[in-house]
Amino acid sequence: MEVILQVLRQQPQQAPRMQRYTLEVQPGTTILECLNRVKWEQDGSLAYRKNCRNTICGSCAMGINGRSALACKENVGSEIQRLEAGGVLQTEDDRPIFTVTPMGNMPVIKDLVVDMKGFWQDLKAVDPYVSTASRQIPEREFLQTPDQRAKLNQMGNCILCGACYAECNAKEVNPAFPGPHALAKAYRTWVDSRDDRTEERLEQYNQGTAGVWGCTRCYACNAVCPMDVDPYDQIGKLKQQILHRKGDQDSRSIRHRKAMVDLVKEGGWVDERKFGVRVVSNTFRDLPGLFSLGPLGLRMLVRGKFPFTFEASEGTAEVRSLIEAVQALPHEDK
Rank of each mutant, 00 (worst) to 15 (best):
residue 2 E to L: 09
residue 2 E to Q: 14
residue 6 Q to P: 03
residue 8 L to A: 08
residue 15 A to D: 14
residue 16 P to W: 02
residue 17 R to E: 12
residue 19 Q to I: 11
residue 31 I to D: 06
residue 33 E to A: 12
residue 37 R to D: 09
residue 38 V to Y: 06
residue 39 K to I: 01
residue 41 E to D: 13
residue 42 Q to H: 11
residue 45 S to L: 12
residue 48 Y to G: 03
residue 53 R to F: 11
residue 56 I to V: 15
residue 57 C to R: 00
residue 61 A to W: 02
residue 64 I to A: 04
residue 65 N to D: 15
residue 66 G to E: 01
residue 68 S to C: 04
residue 71 A to E: 04
residue 75 N to T: 05
residue 76 V to Q: 05
residue 76 V to T: 10
residue 78 S to M: 12
residue 80 I to H: 05
residue 81 Q to K: 10
residue 84 E to I: 00
residue 88 V to I: 14
residue 89 L to N: 03
residue 94 D to E: 12
residue 96 P to G: 06
residue 98 F to Q: 02
residue 98 F to T: 00
residue 99 T to R: 10
residue 101 T to I: 06
residue 103 M to P: 02
residue 109 I to W: 01
residue 112 L to V: 08
residue 115 D to P: 05
residue 116 M to Y: 10
residue 122 D to T: 09
residue 122 D to Q: 14
residue 129 Y to V: 15
residue 129 Y to L: 14
residue 130 V to A: 09
residue 130 V to T: 12
residue 131 S to G: 11
residue 132 T to W: 13
residue 135 R to D: 11
residue 139 E to K: 12
residue 139 E to Q: 12
residue 141 E to H: 08
residue 142 F to L: 14
residue 142 F to R: 14
residue 143 L to D: 07
residue 148 Q to K: 04
residue 149 R to C: 04
residue 149 R to E: 13
residue 155 M to E: 11
residue 160 L to T: 05
residue 160 L to Y: 10
residue 161 C to V: 01
residue 167 E to H: 02
residue 171 K to D: 03
residue 179 G to M: 00
residue 180 P to V: 09
residue 182 A to C: 08
residue 183 L to V: 01
residue 187 Y to W: 10
residue 187 Y to I: 02
residue 191 V to T: 05
residue 193 S to V: 13
residue 196 D to V: 08
residue 198 T to Y: 13
residue 199 E to C: 01
residue 203 E to K: 14
residue 203 E to N: 15
residue 205 Y to Q: 05
residue 215 C to R: 01
residue 216 T to I: 05
residue 223 A to G: 05
residue 225 C to H: 00
residue 225 C to L: 01
residue 231 P to Q: 06
residue 233 D to S: 12
residue 234 Q to N: 08
residue 237 K to S: 08
residue 246 K to W: 07
residue 248 D to F: 10
residue 256 H to M: 10
residue 258 K to F: 03
residue 265 K to Y: 00
residue 265 K to G: 02
residue 267 G to S: 08
residue 269 W to K: 12
residue 269 W to F: 12
residue 271 D to I: 02
residue 272 E to A: 10
residue 276 G to I: 01
residue 282 N to Q: 14
residue 284 F to P: 04
residue 286 D to R: 07
residue 286 D to F: 04
residue 294 G to I: 15
residue 295 P to S: 08
residue 300 M to D: 07
residue 300 M to L: 15
residue 305 K to I: 04
residue 306 F to A: 07
residue 307 P to S: 06
residue 308 F to P: 04
residue 308 F to N: 08
residue 309 T to F: 10
residue 312 A to V: 11
residue 314 E to I: 07
residue 317 A to M: 08
residue 321 S to F: 07
residue 323 I to R: 03
residue 327 Q to K: 12
residue 329 L to R: 15
residue 329 L to P: 02
residue 330 P to F: 00
residue 333 D to C: 11
residue 333 D to M: 12
